[in-house]
Measured scan of single mutants.
Amino acid sequence: SLEGTEKASWLGEQPQFWSKTQVLDWISYQVEKNKYDASAIDFSRCDMDGATLCNCALEELRLVFGPLGDQLHAQLRDLTSS
Score class of each variant (00 low, 15 high):
65 F>L: 06
54 C>I: 12
34 N>D: 02
81 S>C: 06
49 D>N: 05
45 R>K: 11
16 Q>H: 15
7 K>A: 14
57 A>Q: 10
23 V>A: 09
74 A>V: 08
31 V>N: 05
44 S>P: 08
78 D>E: 07
18 W>S: 00
10 W>F: 08
19 S>F: 01
44 S>W: 06
45 R>C: 03
56 C>Q: 08
52 T>M: 05
51 A>M: 14
55 N>Y: 05
53 L>A: 01
44 S>R: 11
68 L>W: 05
7 K>M: 11
6 E>G: 10
21 T>L: 14
64 V>M: 14
78 D>G: 14
6 E>A: 12
4 G>L: 08
31 V>K: 15
81 S>M: 15
40 A>F: 04
1 S>R: 04
65 F>D: 01
20 K>V: 06
38 A>G: 10
81 S>E: 05
9 S>W: 05
16 Q>P: 06
1 S>P: 04
55 N>L: 09
39 S>H: 02
75 Q>N: 15
72 L>S: 00
77 R>Q: 09
15 P>D: 00
34 N>M: 14
30 Q>G: 02
30 Q>P: 01
80 T>P: 04
5 T>M: 07
25 D>C: 07
73 H>C: 03
61 L>P: 00
51 A>T: 11
53 L>S: 00
30 Q>H: 15
2 L>V: 04
70 D>C: 02
20 K>D: 04
46 C>L: 12
55 N>D: 12
15 P>F: 02
16 Q>V: 04
30 Q>N: 11
28 S>H: 12
45 R>E: 10
71 Q>K: 12
29 Y>K: 11
49 D>V: 04
17 F>R: 12
35 K>L: 12
11 L>D: 08
53 L>W: 00
53 L>M: 11
76 L>F: 03
72 L>M: 10
20 K>L: 04
29 Y>M: 07
20 K>R: 13
14 Q>M: 06
46 C>F: 14
31 V>Q: 03
2 L>S: 11
9 S>I: 05
4 G>K: 12
45 R>M: 12
48 M>C: 01
8 A>K: 09
70 D>P: 13
29 Y>G: 08
79 L>A: 06
49 D>P: 02
46 C>N: 08
39 S>D: 09
45 R>T: 09
62 R>E: 05
33 K>R: 08
25 D>L: 04
69 G>L: 01
23 V>M: 03
74 A>F: 14
53 L>Q: 00
8 A>M: 15
61 L>A: 05
51 A>I: 04
75 Q>C: 15
76 L>E: 01
54 C>Q: 05
34 N>S: 12
18 W>D: 00
74 A>M: 15
34 N>C: 07
38 A>F: 07
32 E>T: 08
20 K>E: 03
44 S>L: 11
50 G>S: 00
47 D>W: 04
2 L>G: 09
44 S>K: 12
42 D>T: 10
35 K>P: 10
26 W>H: 00
18 W>C: 00
29 Y>D: 09
20 K>N: 14
63 L>W: 07
63 L>I: 13
40 A>D: 12
79 L>C: 04
57 A>S: 14
24 L>E: 08
76 L>V: 09
77 R>D: 03
80 T>N: 15
73 H>I: 02
51 A>S: 09
69 G>D: 00
45 R>H: 15
65 F>V: 09
5 T>H: 04
18 W>G: 00
19 S>T: 09
80 T>F: 01
17 F>S: 13
71 Q>D: 12
8 A>L: 05
18 W>A: 00
79 L>Q: 11
80 T>V: 12
18 W>L: 00
56 C>R: 10
35 K>Q: 12
53 L>I: 09
4 G>M: 07
75 Q>L: 07
54 C>M: 13
80 T>Q: 15
82 S>V: 06
39 S>F: 02
23 V>W: 00
45 R>D: 15
68 L>A: 11
8 A>Y: 05
43 F>H: 06
75 Q>G: 14
26 W>C: 00
73 H>K: 07
75 Q>E: 10
58 L>K: 09
82 S>H: 15
31 V>R: 06
42 D>A: 06
36 Y>P: 05
74 A>Q: 06
12 G>S: 14
51 A>G: 12
4 G>F: 15
38 A>S: 11
72 L>W: 01
37 D>I: 03
42 D>G: 03
12 G>A: 09
63 L>Y: 15
66 G>K: 01
46 C>Y: 06
35 K>N: 14
77 R>C: 06
27 I>H: 01
75 Q>D: 15
42 D>F: 01
44 S>V: 06
44 S>N: 02
55 N>E: 15
19 S>E: 05
24 L>R: 05
9 S>N: 04
54 C>R: 04
20 K>S: 11
43 F>P: 03
56 C>K: 10
66 G>H: 02
32 E>M: 14
55 N>C: 11
62 R>D: 06
69 G>I: 02
4 G>E: 12
69 G>Y: 02
26 W>I: 00
54 C>F: 05
68 L>N: 04
55 N>T: 06
19 S>A: 03
54 C>D: 01
62 R>A: 06
45 R>Y: 07
71 Q>F: 11
41 I>C: 11
60 E>Q: 08
65 F>K: 00
47 D>P: 06
12 G>L: 08
16 Q>W: 15
78 D>I: 10
78 D>C: 03
17 F>D: 01
44 S>F: 05
45 R>A: 10
44 S>D: 09
72 L>G: 00
45 R>N: 05
67 P>I: 07
57 A>T: 12
13 E>F: 04
16 Q>C: 09
18 W>N: 01
42 D>K: 04
11 L>V: 06
16 Q>S: 12
47 D>C: 10
62 R>K: 04
67 P>D: 13
42 D>E: 14
19 S>H: 04
70 D>A: 08
17 F>M: 08
47 D>V: 11
56 C>V: 13
21 T>K: 07
81 S>N: 15
82 S>A: 12
58 L>T: 06
37 D>P: 07
58 L>G: 09
34 N>T: 08
72 L>R: 00
17 F>G: 13
73 H>M: 09
25 D>A: 09
53 L>T: 01
43 F>V: 07
52 T>G: 10
32 E>L: 08
18 W>H: 00
54 C>K: 05
37 D>K: 04
44 S>C: 05
6 E>V: 12
40 A>M: 12
76 L>P: 00
81 S>L: 09
13 E>W: 06
58 L>F: 12
17 F>H: 05
55 N>P: 00
52 T>L: 06
16 Q>T: 02
82 S>R: 10
68 L>E: 02
60 E>K: 07
37 D>L: 05
27 I>V: 06
20 K>T: 05
42 D>Q: 11
69 G>C: 05
51 A>L: 09
25 D>W: 02
67 P>Y: 11
27 I>C: 09
81 S>D: 03
30 Q>M: 15
6 E>D: 14
7 K>V: 09
14 Q>T: 05
63 L>C: 12
22 Q>S: 05
6 E>R: 12
48 M>I: 08
14 Q>D: 13
16 Q>L: 07
63 L>V: 11
79 L>T: 02
33 K>Q: 12
39 S>A: 10
7 K>D: 13
62 R>Y: 10
62 R>M: 07
49 D>G: 02
6 E>Y: 11
21 T>V: 06
2 L>E: 12
51 A>F: 11
61 L>S: 01
56 C>G: 04
47 D>T: 14
81 S>F: 03
27 I>Q: 00
4 G>R: 12
80 T>H: 15
14 Q>L: 11
11 L>F: 03
11 L>S: 10
29 Y>W: 12
82 S>G: 15
10 W>M: 05
41 I>M: 03
34 N>A: 11
18 W>V: 00
12 G>V: 06
23 V>Y: 03
11 L>T: 08
9 S>E: 09
66 G>Q: 00
33 K>V: 13
17 F>V: 08
33 K>N: 15
55 N>V: 07
60 E>L: 02
6 E>S: 10
70 D>V: 07
16 Q>A: 06
32 E>Y: 02
59 E>R: 09
43 F>Y: 14
51 A>D: 10
18 W>F: 01
64 V>H: 15
37 D>R: 08
75 Q>S: 12
81 S>H: 08
15 P>N: 01
13 E>C: 14
73 H>Q: 08
19 S>D: 06
47 D>F: 09
36 Y>H: 08
15 P>C: 02
3 E>H: 05
